[in-house]
């Protein structure tokens, strides 16, 4: 009987050491970490999208600048032809 009590007591004490001495993060702390990871993933996605939008805008700007140069070149061409034809650009047809 005494031996049995002693064994059970030892089991109890061992359980306490096994379970209770190391500190672990609790559930709300783990949730906090999970939320933080999600926020980082979301920010990475937003940055990827923003970079694509930036690249698209840069291309549009380059294209628009080319279009403007083209129109200005066409204006000069027309002006030369009108002068060669003896016409002023301000004259009506």
């Amino acid at each position: 009987m005494k031996k049995l009590s002693g064994a059970i007591l030892s089991l109890f004490v061992a359980s306490v050491f096994l379970v209770g001495c190391t500190k672990y993060a609790n559930q709300s702390e783990m949730q906090q970490l999970s939320n933080l990871k999600s926020e980082v993933a979301s920010l990475e996605q937003q940055i990827s999208t923003a970079r694509q939008e930036k690249a698209s805008l840069e291309k549009q700007i380059a294209d628009k600048q080319d279009q403007i140069k083209k129109v200005q070149s066409n204006e000069q061409f027309l002006q030369q032809k009108l002068q060669a034809a003896g016409q002023d650009s301000s004259q009506s047809q």
Binding site: K23, M30, L36, L43
Partner: peptide
């Protein structure tokens, strides 16, 4: 289960990453 000090390290790392992003 995550040990508390490991949790603390991860919190610091991800917090820094979030702020940078």
């Amino acid at each position: 289960k995550m040990k508390y000090n490991e949790w603390q390290q991860q919190i610091s790392m991800y917090t820094a990453q979030r702020d940078s992003l």
